[in-house]
Write a protein that binds this DNA or RNA. Structure first.
Length: 666
RNA sequence: GCGCCCGUAGCUCAACGGAUAGAGCAACGGACUUCUAAUCCGUAGGUUGCAGGUUCGAAUCCUGCCGGGCGUACCA
């Protein structure tokens, strides 16, 4: 049961009973949303803040309205009689007796009190979506982890959910490895380890293309750096020319100078990057000769891609040969991450549909020819959505439209969620607008954007040499650090180490992967965050490790006491609330359903991490203050064991919904 | 230039239009003969970028400014 939702219902009923024509029925539910959890326990557990906004409408003092609503609202049996303040707040406190009863009911409940959604909706979640020909990197973490957490949570709430991995399996990257395969492959290496060899070919071709582009851009970049330098000098001169008495003028000129400084820094950085790319190839004789032997490699790669798309038998054959190996590679990483999909329909799946999509858009007047391309113009958007290029090729925008069409035909979902980084928000605004005009008006389309993973320097997370960081090496590093922490802790246990080497490895894997996922999920989805092994593996604070530790402590109590959780559940002892620590823990246990409702309200998993952190913290306090095995009476011991069991189950379930595991010992 | 997002404790971040803005890290002071100290308890730290406005009530909504990130017609 969701207690908050229930109290809101009661207050909506109270408004109805108020029988005041000034308040429309439509307002009841809206006002009832002003029943909220208290920010501070001194005011109680929940508060109803609806008297204040009603005061003007009803032309009566808020305190008086609050008193009346407090009487009309039937908050029994859960809450004590409401207390009303002079400002008009209605404070609600859950009665200890009922709290105990609620927990007692929770004990045998597999769902831990979480109600099934009524009615259930059907969702398609589009997440992860890496390009399969290149190794997965740090940039894929967020989409994968957030999407998976939302998938699990929506499913647990009883919705019909289809997790769809919209792979990039049809793009230029395949042109690159086809080209690489034709010209640079090492047959023995390919026979031995095809994925590694394809990865090498991808990186090699990519490097040669970057070299070619950098060479081509170099004069322009030099020119731009010189020009920005000049405008900076002008801006500085202009600033000096402003008389000191003109403070407004000074400010304006200083702002211009700052802008020029930033532009110069950007131009110089770009120039430096281009030079580094050229240097990387030319300092290596082998690479340099390859670059010389393959001029126009960029165009050649595009031609290979075009031949693939046009159905050239040899390129299609190679694509079919490469794809399984590439898929196996990412599947291995998904297995390690514990991420699953219901379907994996990559871009290639929609290839056949693209011409019809464009034709249909043209026929219905949604798109038109413009400068040789086919474009869908949308009011209030500065640029159109281009669905076919001048050269006749389709774009990912076209694929995205075809994907919506297919998903609607195949599953007719109520909601489609796209877990994709914030830089694509404009693309999605266009996409959704065009989809609406195309006739998909019922389905809710949400772009769940997220921020960038930053390094400790505040710049997007990269290696020291400036490369993106491979996802797998990230996992390995986190696990390696977790292993050191596990060993250090186990060696220091008062009764000596209790983990075997094998167990230590397993714990380290669970803790390390959990740390990475949790660090990501505990940030607000939309903000950037700084990637730090130190912080994510910290043993105090809002980390997976802390939750996992709390879970392990509970399990340890059961082990030491020779108790079985199933036995406690079957016994279903009365719950006794004898201290503030017990009460705080008990109330949080009852509020698990609220946390999950919060998560899906705006698709923010950090609501769940915040809840779990509070719960685990509350348990730690309880652990310090309330002896379980040595409780003064058998009844209290059993009651506390029941609290422990529920805590462990909520933590385990909560972490599971985030895609994070637990350990019995750590 | 235009568009989108962001500015909260020294640092990293929470906060649903609600009461005295919360955590963690770092700092300081306590608690292991007691179920895992990977812990707990306490102290200190704030003009929520600035200025207006809306509201009974604003970190939250609106306007302007300052500062930052990202995106801006044929890449994905």
């Amino acid at each position: 049961m969701n207690l908050l939702a229930e109290l809101r219902r009661r207050f909506a009923q109270a408004l109805e009973k108020l029988d005041n024509e000034a308040i429309s029925a439509a307002q009841w539910e809206e006002l009832a949303r002003l029943v909220l959890p208290c920010q501070h326990p001194r005011f109680g557990d929940y508060q109803a803040n609806l008297a204040m906004p009603l005061a003007r409408q009803l032309r009566r003092p808020p305190a008086e309205i609050a008193r009346q609503l407090g009487e009309l609202a039937d908050v029994s049996p859960w809450c004590l009689p409401p207390e009303v303040t002079a400002q008009g707040f209605i404070n609600l406190r859950v009665s200890d007796e009922r709290l105990a009863a609620l927990l007692h009911d929770l004990l045998p409940d597999e769902r831990l009190g979480v109600p099934l959604a009524a009615p259930p909706l059907s969702y398609v979640i589009d997440y992860s979506a890496p390009n399969v020909a290149k190794p997965m990197h740090v940039g894929h973490i967020r989409s994968t982890v957030i999407g998976d957490a939302l998938y699990r949570t929506l499913k647990f709430l009883g919705h019909r959910v289809i997790g769809d991995n919209h792979l990039g399996d049809w793009g230029t990257q395949f042109g690159m490895i086809i080209y690489g395969y034709r010209h640079f492959r090492d047959p023995q290496a390919y026979a031995r380890q095809p994925v590694a060899e394809l990865g090498r070919l991808y990186r090699l071709v990519n490097q040669l293309i970057e070299h070619e582009e950098a060479c081509a851009q170099l004069p322009e970049l030099k020119r731009r750096a010189a020009a920005t330098k000049q405008s900076l000098e002008q801006a500085e001169a202009a600033l000096r020319a402003v008389p000191p008495t003109d403070s407004a003028g000074q400010k304006r000129a200083a702002a211009v100078r700052r802008k020029c400084e930033a532009a110069l820094a950007a131009a110089e950085a770009e120039l430096a990057e281009a030079r580094a790319r050229i240097q990387a190839v030319e300092s290596d004789p082998q690479l340099a000769s390859l670059a010389a032997a393959h001029p126009q490699i960029g165009a050649a790669v595009l031609a290979e891609t075009a031949r693939l798309h046009a159905g050239d038998p040899e390129n299609v054959r190679l694509w079919r040969e490469f794809l399984p190996a590439c898929r196996a590679e990412i599947d291995r990483i998904y297995a390690r991450l514990g991420v699953r999909f219901d379907v994996t329909l990559g871009e290639s799946f929609y290839h056949d549909r693209l011409p019809q999509v464009v034709d249909e858009l043209l026929a219905r007047g949604i798109a038109q020819h413009s400068e040789g391309a086919v474009c869908a113009f949308v009011p209030d958007m500065p640029a159109p959505m281009i669905v076919r290029k001048r050269d006749g090729a389709f774009l990912y925008a076209t694929t995205d439209l075809a994907t919506i069409q297919y998903r609607m035909e195949a599953w007719s979902p109520d909601v489609i969620l796209y877990v994709v980084d914030h830089r694509q928000s404009e693309h999605f605004r266009l996409l959704f607008a065009v989809a609406r005009r195309w006739g998909y008006q019922q389905v809710a389309l949400h772009h769940l954007s997220f921020g960038t993973v930053l390094g400790e320097d505040g710049r997007p997370f990269r290696t020291r040499s400036g490369d993106t960081v491979g996802l797998e090496s990230l996992l390995d590093e986190a696990v390696a650090r977790a292993y050191r922490i596990v060993c250090e802790n186990d060696d220091q246990k008062p009764d000596g180490p209790e983990l075997s080497e094998e167990e230590r490895r397993q714990v380290a894997e669970t803790v390390g992967i959990g740390a990475i996922k949790y660090a990501d999920l505990s940030q607000h989805r939309t903000s950037d965050y700084v990637f730090s092994y130190e912080k994510m593996l910290a043993t105090k604070g809002n980390t997976a490790t802390y939750m996992q530790y709390a879970y392990a402590r509970v399990r340890s109590i059961f082990r030491k006491g020779g108790e079985q959780p199933e036995a406690i559940r079957a016994l279903a002892p009365p719950i006794m609330i004898t201290s503030p620590a017990e009460r705080a823990l008990a109330l949080l246990l009852v509020r698990f359903p609220e946390a999950l409702a919060d998560v899906v309200e705006d698709f923010c998993p950090n609501k769940l991490t915040a809840y779990l952190w509070e719960l685990a913290n509350s348990f730690s306090t309880f652990f310090e203050e309330c002896p379980v095995l040595r409780a003064p009476t058998t009844e209290l011991r059993q009651s506390r064991l029941a609290l422990c069991d529920l805590t462990a189950r909520v933590i385990r379930r909560g972490l599971d919904l985030l895609g994070i595991g637990v350990c019995e010992k750590m």
